[in-house]
């Protein structure tokens, strides 16, 4: 567990959108998907996911329907709306810019050595 990182505040919503961009999932599924696509490197407390889901639904970025899970349990499935897709594109772009900028800044520090 030592190589797991705390989530940067404000990035959970983005991760949820990203996870759902691959297809509709229930809450637990979103959690597993994030673990999977992050290579198990991100630590999210399970309960913390739900306020995020509710927030995104309220903003109209997600919509939810009740359905049946793989192992036959009634679960609420979330999927991206058009607005959600658009938001994901924007967030991805700005995130990439930010990461590049920071990586650039951090890489250009010779004093470290």
């Amino acid at each position: 567990m030592a190589d797991q990182a705390q989530l940067i505040p404000g990035t959970l919503d983005m991760l949820i959108l990203r996870a759902l961009s691959l297809g509709p999932l229930h809450g637990y599924g979103v959690l597993l998907r994030i673990e999977q696509i992050s290579g198990g490197a991100l630590l999210i407390e399970q309960g913390a996911l739900y306020p995020g889901l509710f927030r995104l639904v309220r903003q109209g970025l997600l919509k939810s329907t009740w359905g049946i899970s793989d192992n036959n349990r009634r679960a609420k499935f979330y999927e991206l709306t058009a607005a959600g897709r658009k938001r994901l594109r924007e967030e991805t772009e700005s995130w990439n810019r930010l990461v590049n900028a920071i990586a650039c800044a951090m890489g250009a520090q010779p004093e470290e050595t």
Binding site: G27, Q46, Y50, R73, R74, K76
Partner: peptide, 16 residues
């Protein structure tokens, strides 16, 4: 009620 059901499902799926 819905929220309770959803969270319960989560716990059950995890337990599964």
């Amino acid at each position: 009620r819905e929220m309770d059901a959803e969270l319960r499902t989560h716990l059950e799926l995890r337990a599964d």
